[in-house]
Design a protein around this nucleic acid. Structure first.
Lengths: 302, 302
DNA sequence: AGCAATCCATACCCAAAAGGTATGGGTATA
DNA sequence: TATACCCATACCTTTTGGGTATGGATTGCT
């Protein structure tokens, strides 16, 4: 049995006249007769009653007409859905995330993406950078976000934004009294840094900046993630250095201060994906990232 | 595009290897290659990525695999449903009913039928005998129930049961004091009869019986249906004659009494259907009627 | 490096089935 | 009775489903 048989039967059942149906189908009447005979033989069920005026449906024919229409529309829908999937408008995108990127860039990128691709299911997986790379290679995720590039031949790295660093400090701390602070002040107080894993990481970046300025920071605590670090700062266990996007976190007793003497006090936020993957969904998501980049750069200029 | 293409694609997508899939399908590998190429060309979408180890699914291919499986199972279900419809096990049966038949025979017949054909939707239409015949001809119903045969060349009449008649009388009435009464007593009291329409009808049958006994009954009221007649008896407006099945109606203040001197005091309950209709559902329903008849006759003998 | 094994794609052939024309048989209407 | 209408049958052509042989590309093994 063929989809053609279904199409022919639907036409005959709708016209209740094989000759008219054959005209509608642009085939000859005898051929339509034979095709419907074939269908009935194959099912071993009579679907049409032949009358002098035309044909009429048997009870089984009525049911089969329902089913045939159903299958036809499912077929059309299926093709439509496949086409949308091929354009990246339907499907699933698995994303690896880590740390403070979730606070600023990722939600905005996701919003852009969802506006243009509402039927793509986005699944976020929190995982370390090493896990992200492994997951990319195994295609468990299609794109990952992180702060420090880790070069790999098969992995592409795309810079999203370069964020200024801020001092995160308890409002009772002496440094909170200044509107902006000198980066050199970091030499004088114990610092809370993060994360512990996924080297090189954000903590390494801060230590590198200190070393460039000629001092070695005193690290009071090295904690697993930014949120834990912030909590320690709020609790008075030290000061911390955070990317600008962390300022979204407005905790009571916590203030953020810019550095007035260090233009290089920045950190990158990037995404990684497999060079060889050319899925339309990923392309669309990378386009959303570019949109975000352009909007962000425009804001900075303003 | 064809169902064959779907079958082939499903096999290739499941095996992730065109050669193995072709073996599973008992066709040659080159032919499967070409068929899948055709499918992709027709959709204008790449569904499979060719790798040295075999093939893998593109995102669109994953969606199309879902859709194809869906269509395939719907196809199988559709054929199955059509087969059941052709055996009269799926579909719809429209039945015309009238009067007191609904009290005894019809529910039991329906129960038998529903046991063996649970997926046939039964629709009851209350309509007069003349309407039933018209509806049968227009195929708005497939079978009708009534009490008095009305011969028509194109309509078959099947006797279901022959019921004894009972006197329906108010418990305060003098006739209620006897366990059984004489049919001749009907000559002495005003009688409520029914129905008014669909001649010849049950009222005509009662009048005919009286005439056979040599008297003309005094008809106090001729009402539209049995239920109205019974209500009048309860209200003390007269006595009535009813088929045995009406005894199912146990109203307070109402008693039924047999006739001890009139073996012919019976009425038929029959069904009518079109001679030319040979639908499997109707055949199955007629079979249920035969089952009911046999059970009923067995009960009468016991 | 080179050879064998695998896997998909291409070329070419045949047979089956899709689809066409001509025509016949049955039933209703003029 | 003739005619129109509708479906079925007979027979022919063309398309295409499906086969075999073979080539190009990559991986793994020696």
């Amino acid at each position: 049995m063929d989809l053609r048989h279904l199409k022919y039967f639907i036409a005959a059942a709708e016209e209740l006249n094989i000759g008219r149906a054959s005209q509608r189908l642009y085939i000859s009447q005898p051929h339509l007769t034979r095709q419907i005979q074939q269908l009935e033989e194959e099912l071993n069920i009579q679907l049409l009653l032949r009358t002098p005026k035309g044909v009429e449906l048997t009870p089984a024919g009525k049911i089969f007409l329902d089913e045939a229409r159903n299958i036809r529309s499912l077929m059309e829908q299926g093709i439509e859905r496949t086409k949308r999937a091929s354009q990246g408008k339907l499907g699933r995108l698995d994303i690896g995330i880590l740390g403070t990127g979730i606070l600023h860039a990722i939600p905005q990128i996701l919003r852009h993406f969802r506006d243009t691709h509402p039927d793509v299911k986005v699944v976020l997986h929190t995982m370390s950078k090493a896990d992200q790379i492994e997951a990319l290679r195994q295609k468990r995720i299609s794109i990952g976000f992180h702060r420090m590039p880790l070069l790999n031949v098969d992995i592409d790295n795309l810079l999203i934004i370069n964020e200024r660093l801020y001092l995160a400090v308890n409002e009772d701390h002496i440094l909170s009294r200044q509107e902006s602070v000198s980066f050199m002040e970091l030499a004088n107080y114990p610092i809370v840094l993060f994360p512990t894993e996924a080297r090189p990481n954000f903590a390494d970046r801060v230590i590198e900046l200190c070393r460039n300025k000629g001092f070695v920071p005193e690290i009071s605590q090295l904690v697993g993630d930014a949120f834990t670090g912030i909590a320690l700062v709020v609790g008075g266990f030290g000061i911390s250095v955070v990317p600008e996007s962390t300022r979204t976190l407005n905790l009571p007793g916590l203030v953020y201060r810019p550095f007035h003497d260090c233009n290089s006090a920045t950190v990158d936020f990037s995404c990684i994906y497999q060079k060889s993957e050319h899925s339309a969904i990923l392309e669309a998501f990378l386009a959303a990232i570019h949109t975000f980049k352009q909007q962000h750069e425009a804001q900075v200029i303003v």
